[in-house]
Amino acid sequence: MTATTASPQPAAPRSDRSDEVRKALRTVDTGRRRKDRAMQVVVYVAFALAVIPLISVAWTVLSNGIERFDWYFLTHSMRGVFGGMDAGGIYHAIVGTFEITLGATIISVPIGILTAIYLVEYGRGSLARSVTFFVDVMTGIPSIVAGLFAYALFAVFFGPGISMGIMGSIALSVLMIPVVVRSTEEMLKLVPNELREASYALGVPKWLTIVKVVLRTATAGIVTGVMLAVARVIGETAPLLITVGVIDSINFNLFDGRMMTLPVYVYRQYSQGYVPCNDASAVCIPEINFDRAWAAALTLILIVMVLNILARLVSRYFSPKIR
C-alpha cells in the first residue's frame, strides 16, 4: 500500500476506497497536536525547574569557594591556625576523606558484588528473598544510625570514646553495600542468558562462566554502580562526626586516632562562624571560616567530578564494542 502511494504512479482510475485512504492520511488531528505541544512545554518547564537548583548550587559554591581555593589551601592542614589568621588548609581532610572512602570501598565492593552474584546466579527460595529484603531495608538506614552502629561495635572492643578512621570506613560501608548490591544485581541481570549457556556448552564450569563471562560482560555497568555508591558516601558527615571525629593536623593512619574529612571540615568551619577581630595589629579576616568551608565544599565537588570522569573512562574501556 505505502509503496504504491509513495511511487509516482500514472493517473490510473482509482476506486473510491483509495480516495478514502488518501483523505484519511491527510486528516490532521488538531486535538492531539495541541496535547503534544502542551506536554512538550510541561516537559521543558520541568527540566528547567530541575536544573535551576543544580546551576545555583554549582555557581554559589564556585563563586564563594574559588577565592581561597589555591595550592596553599590544598597542601596545608589547620595545625596551629587560630582566630582570623590568613592561613590553614584542607590537606588533612583530603587525606582523611580519601583513606576512609577507599577503606569503605575495599570493604563494600567485594561483599556487594558477591552478594549480587549469589542473588542472580545461585539464590533460590526463601534465603534469596530474605537477602533481597534486608538489602532493601539497609538502603533505608539513616546515615547517623550507621555511624552509631560502627561506634557501638568498636566501643565493645576498645571501650567508649574510641575514634579511628577505619570506624568511619565501616560506617560508610554499611551505607555503601546495599547500593553496590542493587546496582550490580541489575547489571548482572542484564547479561543475556544466552552467553551463560554458550559458555556452559563449551564445557566451562559455572564459576568460571560467572567470573570470565558474566562479570566481564557486566564490568562497565558494575564500575559505574560502584562509582555512584562512592559518590553517595563521600559526602556523608554525620556518621564520620561520630566515628572519626575532628582534628586539625594530618593523620595518615586509618587505624589510630581521629582523622579529618572534607564534609566534617565544612561543617566544622561553618559552625565556628565569624571571627571577632579586636587586635588591629595582626592580619585578621572575620569571615575566614566561611571562606574555608566554601573552598572545601568546592574541593569535594571537584573530587566527585574527577572520580565520575575516571569511572566513565574505565567503563568505556571495558564496555562491549561493535567494531
Partner: peptide, 26 residues
C-alpha cells in the same frame, strides 16, 4: 558441543578470542 538458535558470540571478545573461548575460559 552445541550451537544455539540465535548467534551468541561473546560481546567482550574479539573474533579470535571467541574461537579460543573454550580453551581460554577454562
Amino acid at each position: 558441543g552445541m550451537v544455539f538458535q540465535r548467534p551468541n558470540p561473546f560481546p567482550t571478545m574479539s573474533i579470535e578470542e571467541n574461537v579460543l573461548a573454550g580453551v581460554r575460559l577454562v
